[in-house]
Computed example of a mutant assay.
Amino acid sequence: MSYTLQKKIVVVSFLFIPVALLLLFLIYPTIKLFQFSLTDWNGVSKSFSYIGLKNYAVAMQTDAVWKALFNNFRYFIIHALFIPLEIMVAVYLNNKIRGSLFFRSLVFLPYILNGVAVAYIFSYLYNPINGPWNGLLEWIGMEALKRNWLSSPEIVNYSLIVVSLWRFSGFHVILFLAGLQSVPKDLYEAAIIDGAGPFQRFRYITVPGISRVIEIVLFLNVRGALQVFDIPFLMTQGGPGMASTTFTVYTIQTAFKYNNYGLASALAVILMVLIIVFSYLQSQLFKGRTE
Rank of each mutant, 00 (worst) to 15 (best):
L281H: 04
L85T: 02
G179Q: 02
K32Q: 15
F233K: 08
F199T: 13
I87Y: 07
T62I: 06
Q237M: 11
L113Y: 08
L175T: 04
W139Y: 14
L220M: 14
W139D: 11
I161F: 05
Q35S: 12
I174P: 05
Y280M: 02
T246A: 04
E215S: 04
E291F: 13
F286Q: 04
Y261Q: 07
N127R: 03
V10I: 01
N130Q: 14
V19F: 08
S152W: 01
K185E: 14
W139M: 14
A144T: 14
P18G: 07
V183T: 00
I140E: 08
T62K: 07
Y124R: 09
Y250N: 08
L285R: 05
V213S: 02
Y158R: 05
P84V: 01
G115C: 08
L285W: 07
I83F: 09
L226P: 09
F278W: 05
L281R: 04
I121S: 10
F122A: 12
A243E: 10
F278Y: 07
T290L: 15
I205P: 06
L136P: 09
V162I: 14
I252T: 13
G238H: 01
Y126K: 06
S164A: 15
Q253L: 12
F103P: 01
A117R: 03
H172P: 10
R167M: 12
Q282D: 08
P29W: 04
L274R: 03
F176C: 00
I121R: 02
